[in-house]
Simulated assay, not measured.
Amino acid sequence: MSDPDTILEVIGFPQPPQADPPYWLILLHGWGANAADLLPLVPLLAPDGQGFTPNAPFPHPLVPGGRMWYELNLQEDGTVRDPHGEPPREPGPAAGDEAPIDYSCRLLEQWLTTQDIDLSRTILGGFSQGGVMTLEVGLKYPFAGLVVFSGYWLRSLPRSEPSPPILMIHGNQDPVIPVQAAQDSRDRLNQAGFKCTYRELTMGHTINDQAIALAYQFIKTHKKVHK
Rank of each mutant, 00 (worst) to 15 (best):
G32Y: 10
G193H: 01
L201R: 13
I117T: 05
S104F: 00
H170C: 11
L28Y: 13
Q18T: 13
F194K: 02
A213G: 04
K195P: 01
F194A: 11
L124F: 09
L154T: 04
R188K: 13
D187C: 06
S128E: 11
A35N: 07
V42G: 00
I101S: 12
R121N: 08
Q110A: 15
E98C: 08
G85N: 12
T113V: 10
S2G: 09
Q191K: 02
T202M: 11
Y216C: 05
W24R: 09
I101P: 00
A211P: 00
L167T: 09
Q75N: 08
A215Q: 08
G130Y: 12
Y198M: 02
S2N: 13
E76A: 15
K220Y: 15
L108S: 04
T53K: 02
N55Y: 06
Y70L: 01
M1C: 14
Q115D: 07
T113L: 14
M133Y: 14
I123V: 13
V132F: 01
Q173F: 03
P47D: 15
P142Y: 12
P40F: 10
I123A: 06
P178V: 14
M68Q: 15
A192P: 00
D77Y: 00
W153D: 07
P91G: 13
G138D: 03
L74R: 05
Y103I: 11
R199S: 15
D77C: 01
H205A: 14
P14H: 14
L214Y: 09
I207S: 10
P158Q: 11
Y216E: 14
I177P: 02
F127N: 03
G138L: 00
A94I: 01
K220N: 15
A33T: 07
N172R: 06
I11V: 14
M1A: 15
M203P: 00
P175F: 12
M68E: 15
P16M: 11
A192G: 03
A33N: 10
Q183Y: 08
L25Q: 10
Y23T: 04
E200L: 02
L135V: 06
G85V: 08
F149K: 00
Q129E: 10
A95K: 07
I166S: 04
L44Y: 12
N190L: 02
Y152G: 07
E136Y: 08
Q115E: 15
L189V: 06
G126T: 12
L119F: 06
L8Y: 09
S185K: 03
F58S: 15
I101W: 12
A46F: 04
E136I: 08
G130F: 10
G92K: 09
S150Q: 07
E161S: 14
G204C: 07
P93R: 09
A95N: 11
R155A: 11
G145N: 07
G78S: 07
H29N: 04
L38H: 13
E9W: 00
R199N: 10
I212D: 06
I219W: 08
C105R: 15
L25C: 12
A213H: 03
G125W: 14
N55C: 05
G126H: 09
Y70C: 05
A181V: 12
V10A: 11
E90T: 14
P47A: 15
A46W: 01
A211K: 04
